[in-house]
Nucleic acid binder design. Structure first.
Lengths: 111, 111
DNA sequence: GCTTGACGTAACTATATAGTTACGTTACTC
DNA sequence: GAGTAACGTAACTATATAGTTACGTCAAGC
């Protein structure tokens, strides 16, 4: 398992971080702007989440004077979308068939 | 954030669990078969992972005598694929366009 | 040049997670 | 019906994660 991919999954597993990415989908945001979107959390907690996202390559930060502008990098999301979730797509279409097969298989073993 | 969705993300964040789902993609497996696929881990560690997957609704377990047959339920994967990752799809398509535009722009200025 | 706003580092705590060992239950097989 | 294969429950440990508080840096603006 690629360690890089693992970091992306780990980053996405937290609801706060997914929420940050949702916000960045609408456009770049300064660190302060992101922090203000989470009033129930300290600045440092939010900044740690941004760090995790940056380490996973999901967020790119550009310095602008004393401010930091964070923008979304959707490429890693695309990677797990295509490489890992893609193979499941063909299963979705045949899911109904498989449930039917399993049910029949179960009947065979019943008595 | 739906708590149900969060459980799915949490379940997918572990490489062992993704590996189990990969295996189940090829067809149902008994608990013992799955356990044997991870010789570096105890039976109980693997069974805990299966429990997490089952609680997230990603795995469905059917009893067959003293064995348990685990099969994949890809529907939750489809949900996060469509509901959460879908909105990012249009971003990366526009990103590619931008990269393409930048490249063409670069060619014009080159030479 | 001093204050303030924006961000960073470090050290700590609390909780969740991953994994272990030990013991228990159920259902085939002989 | 005794042994064993397949699975389960419980209690514990170790580590990772999320979040906090305290202190520090650096650039803008007056």
């Amino acid at each position: 398992m690629a360690e890089e991919t693992d970091q992306i999954w780990k980053a996405l597993s937290d609801p706060t971080r997914r929420s940050i990415l949702d916000a960045l989908r609408k456009g770049p945001r300064t660190t302060t702007e992101i922090v203000e979107a989470f009033p129930d959390m300290t600045r440092h907690a939010v900044m740690k989440h941004i760090d995790v996202l940056r380490n996973a390559g999901l967020v790119i930060t550009r310095e602008d004077g004393r401010r930091r502008v964070n923008s979304l990098n959707a490429v890693p999301i695309r990677q797990i979308y295509e490489r890992w979730m893609g193979p499941f797509a063909e299963i979705w279409s045949s899911t109904l068939l498989r449930i039917k097969d399993d049910a029949e298989e179960g009947q065979k073993h019943d008595r």
